[in-house]
């Protein structure tokens, strides 16, 4: 019973943590971020302004 209770808590916690990210099949809402290079004059990239009716490939990286 003790292990079962912790298993339920773990599943609930994992569900809460993982459910915040978009998954395959999800419909996105507007998102965006400041452009720091190659913006062609735009300061902000947003899906509603630049991405509607286009295929978007976004790659997030870190410099380390």
């Amino acid at each position: 019973m003790f292990i079962f209770k912790y298993l339920i808590k773990f599943i609930l916690f994992f569900s809460l943590v993982s459910s915040q990210y978009y998954q395959v099949g999800d419909q996105i809402e507007n998102f965006g971020a400041p452009i720091c290079m190659n913006g062609n004059g735009d300061d902000i990239w947003s899906y509603d302004q630049h991405g509607i009716n286009k295929v978007i490939f976004l790659s997030v990286f870190a410099t380390w």
Partner: peptide, 9 residues
């Protein structure tokens, strides 16, 4: 009509 963007941190 494909947009390639990257985001750094």
């Amino acid at each position: 009509e494909v947009i390639i963007i990257t985001a750094g941190k």
